[in-house]
């Protein structure tokens, strides 16, 4: 299939999960591959438990604006199930691909007992019914297993890189990561990135959906 004129990728999650770094790695890999890239980020709420979203727009043709219009996301990378669903509702369409971390992070209203957190299976069902594909993975557990409990973002970046949405090889992402960390920290982050790559490669559903 020919490459679309613009890839509209949304990285979504909760403040403190490292979404901004993940979006910057994806965006830098694209710039280093010769694309025009625009990223719109809202990190005012970062670290304070609010919803955090990065819009990444990647095009061979021209620079787009920093906000993806409603219904036009081509890909959603969700670090948290509820945030993934919240983002899909306005921005997704039946052609949107979704990669989602299964680890929940409870909103204050759920903690204090005013709301209940929706069942994960229902969230998955709702997303699957309204997208092209859903790959759900235990990214936080994979990060812990790789020795970096805070490396969920790297696992998710690896999963995105391996999903083949962009014609950019994993080595390009790894090169960007190598520019960010040194020594042991680099090894740990690369291990988390590769854990994400491996998890997505093993996903049979995605293999069938790949275009």
């Amino acid at each position: 299939m020919a490459e679309p004129s613009v890839h509209n990728i949304i990285v979504t999650g909760v403040g403190g999960q490292g979404n901004v770094l993940a979006s910057q790695i994806i965006a830098t890999a694209a710039v280093n591959s010769g694309y025009f890239v625009s990223v719109g980020e809202t990190f005012g709420a970062s670290q304070r438990g609010g919803s955090v979203m990065s819009h990444i727009r990647i095009s061979r043709e021209e620079a787009y604006g920093p906000l993806i219009p409603r219904g036009k996301a081509t890909m959603i990378v969700g670090f948290e199930p509820l945030e993934t669903l919240r983002t899909l509702i306005p921005y997704g369409n039946k052609e949107t691909g979704v990669i989602m971390n299964l680890r929940s992070n409870y909103p204050l209203s759920v903690l204090v007992g005013e709301d209940t957190y929706p069942e994960i299976e229902k969230i998955k069902e709702a997303i699957a019914a309204n997208s092209r594909f859903l790959v759900a993975l235990e990214a936080t557990e994979l990060a812990v297993a790789a020795g970096v409990p805070v490396g969920t973002n790297m696992v998710m970046t690896g999963a995105f890189a391996g999903a083949g949405v962009l014609p950019i090889p994993p080595e390009t992402y790894e090169g960007v990561i190598a520019g960010l960390f040194g020594g042991e920290l680099l090894e740990l982050n690369l291990a988390a990135f590769r854990a994400g790559l491996k998890a997505i490669a093993a996903d049979q559903d995605l293999a069938g959906q790949r275009r």
Partner: peptide, 24 residues
């Protein structure tokens, strides 16, 4: 603007709780 999939999602997940800011 595209309506989004709010209606379809509601059948499975009636409410997506808001995320208030909180002290870390």
């Amino acid at each position: 603007p595209p309506p989004g999939c709010d209606e379809s999602v509601k059948k499975l997940v009636p409410k997506v709780p808001q995320r208030d800011l909180a002290f870390c």
